[in-house]
Design a protein around this nucleic acid. Structure first.
Lengths: 168, 168
DNA sequence: ACAGTTTGGTTGAGACTTCAACGATGCCTG
DNA sequence: CAGGCATCGTTGAAGTCTCAACCAAACTGT
């Protein structure tokens, strides 16, 4: 290689010791938290967090029905992933797919009665789980700050840097 | 079924509207954040976040070597998962396994030179990624609060509620 | 010493995710 | 209305994680 290597000795703004600790605490704590909550949700209801979220979104939608693509965008899932997830949930009778009258390409996904009762049964235990391991561990101010911070991060990701397939 | 259904109408402490917003912001924001960072890390270095973490831990260990079980505990991975991950990394020449002299059951995992250079190459870009999407999006106070909060959550999970396979 | 238990690590099967390729419909412009 | 392009959703293969079963070595108490 030449004399002035322009690609390598990147002039990075490293993290300070304190920042590093905060970042690691955030990463580790979050991962472990999601792990526990996922595990409890699964053993209480047989649902994965993703499936639970699908049911929640559907429960809030008019006629408990939503287009696949909307669902995918809301959940920040790839379409492929959603298709697989919904197929499995359909096999278990939690949701049903049907053609979309407005757009022949589209597919509507509706919650079944079983899906509803499953969600209703799962929700209280899940909420308790979130309380036990997160909300009640923190002071109200801490929890509030957590929500605010991550809302800002989410906002920055969604709108900010030409996310994924958008031209700047 | 009988008259007084004892199993169902659980007396749950539901989340308030505000709590729910904070929880959702935290969940969604975190998931999207990890997604982006993972994607950038992978496209910059071909490493997954898990693999990157393995290399970081090894780089900090004496002789850049650590026992499999320690590694698994540190990373909050199942032993099985770690075995799979390390096997793949070994095939790529990033780490090496060897018998543990002190404990014939044990296996030592050491970072290779390639592992080291891979980590060194990946680190600056990864740090920048974390800055871009998290640290620099927040005020120093917000970031600090985030770290503190999740440190408390982690502490509560690790030490608190007879985690997993420990009797209370 | 020795059965019983615990710990360290691996394995294989099954479930889930990712990624690239695809078919089909809708939109847009000449 | 035809051709080109974007969007909707599905599919299959390959990679990764989970879970239960397993072997081997190390403690434990007798």
């Amino acid at each position: 290689m030449g004399t002035t290597d322009t690609t390598s000795p990147v002039d990075v703004q490293w993290l300070t010791e304190a920042e590093q600790q905060d970042w690691r605490a955030f990463r580790d704590g979050t991962i472990r938290l999601f792990d526990v909550i996922a595990h409890e949700l699964d053993s209480n209801s047989g649902l994965s967090p993703h499936e639970y979220e699908v049911l929640v979104r559907l429960s809030e939608a008019p006629a408990r029905t939503q287009r696949m693509s909307e669902l995918a965008d809301d959940l920040a899932h790839s379409r492929s992933r959603l298709t697989h997830t919904i197929r499995r949930m359909e096999e278990r009778g939690l949701v049903e797919r049907s053609a979309c009258s407005a757009d022949a390409r589209g597919v509507n996904c509706a919650m079944t009665e079983l899906g509803w009762t499953t969600l209703v049964a799962a929700a209280p235990l899940h909420v308790q789980s979130v309380r036990d391991h997160l909300v009640d561990v923190l002071t109200p101010e801490q929890f509030r700050a957590l929500g605010d911070a991550m809302a800002a991060v989410r906002e920055h990701l969604v709108s900010g840097p030409c996310h994924a397939a958008t031209e700047c």
